[in-house]
């Protein structure tokens, strides 16, 4: 890939904040013993320490890194995130980060970007927009309902859609429907939008819709997958996804580690027919 990624650090940090930012999403801030740089799209493997330690760490996309503090967003979906939600400020967290291939930074040839973030898939795209966003980029977030949307994290440049049109705070707006519909209506408001780069992270239906939206228009599309992982650093082969061997049109495929070859993939490289229902469960358990 030619991407120079920062050194991965294995560190034990301390929770500085662990609180809901919406009805379903929590933000975890961890102060590490040293500052760790990351590229948007990279992730961390987190675990509790001592008696609460899980057999495997859990992968979380990095929302932000400010000095020695690294921030994450999560939803309680299983044993791991249940234990994470119980952590109080001051408690220890094991953190292996950063890991994985990021979303690339834009260059002069990169067309304006369309960001499609679904639920807990927000962090990598939020980080990318904060660091690399340019005028003309379009950022869209899809949530379950108004209460599920982490409004405090979304500046006015974010467009928001919800499945259920309830609990929208005063002064904020949300489209009722799919986030891809919202993006298309924004893009086509003034006619042909011209070429775009689509970048998506979220549940599998969103990723498929994003890939299809891009493919139909011959636009490039990058998706960040959220596979369950064992190790997160490329040794266990427990998080593989099917990728085409030679790009579109080739019938061959192989397994790629989503931890080291991803989590960001070119949507055209993924074998969507083999990408089964067990994939991309929408966040770490």
């Amino acid at each position: 890939m030619g991407l120079l990624t920062p050194t991965t650090w294995d560190l034990t940090g301390r929770v500085t904040a662990n609180a809901p930012v919406s009805s379903g999403l929590l933000r975890l801030d961890v102060e590490l013993p040293r500052s760790v740089t990351f590229e948007p799209g990279q992730f961390a493997m987190l675990n509790l320490t001592g008696a609460g330690q899980l057999v495997f760490r859990r992968p979380f996309s990095i929302l932000a890194s400010d000095g020695r503090t690294m921030s994450f967003l999560y939803r309680v979906v299983g044993r791991g995130t249940e234990r994470l939600a119980d952590l109080e400020p001051g408690e220890a967290v094991d953190c292996l980060a950063p890991l994985g291939k990021p979303f690339a930074a834009p260059d002069a040839a990169t067309p304006p970007v369309v960001i499609l973030a679904g639920g807990v898939g927000l962090p990598p795209l939020h980080a990318w927009l904060s660091r690399h966003g340019r005028p003309g980029d379009l950022a869209c977030f899809g949530g379950r309902d108004g209460g599920d949307v982490p409004w405090s994290l979304l500046s006015d440049e974010w467009r928001v859609s919800v499945d259920r049109d309830v609990d929208i705070p005063a002064g904020r707006q949300a489209h009722h429907g799919l986030v891809t519909e919202l993006a298309l209506s924004e893009l086509e408001r003034d006619g042909d939008p011209g070429p775009r780069l689509v970048m998506a992270c979220g549940p599998t239906p969103l990723l498929r819709a994003a890939a299809m939206l891009a493919r139909d228009r011959d636009w490039p599309c990058l998706v960040s997958l959220e596979e369950h992982m064992g190790c997160g650093y490329g040794v266990c082969k427990g998080c593989v996804v099917p990728v085409r061997l030679d790009g579109p049109g080739d019938s061959g495929w192989r397994n790629a580690n989503s931890c080291t070859e991803g989590p960001v993939f070119d949507a055209a490289d993924l074998d969507w027919e083999r990408f089964g229902a067990h994939h991309a469960t929408g966040g770490a358990a």
Binding site: L54, V55, F56, R79, H228, G230, C236, K237, G238, V240, R254, N255, G276, H278, H279
Partner: peptide, 23 residues
Amino acid sequence: RPGNPMPRLVEMPVGAINSIGLE
């Protein structure tokens, strides 16, 4: 060997069951 279909790992309270399939 392409290995076994996913899912390949099941975490248990005291370990894990794997079915990587010698990929």
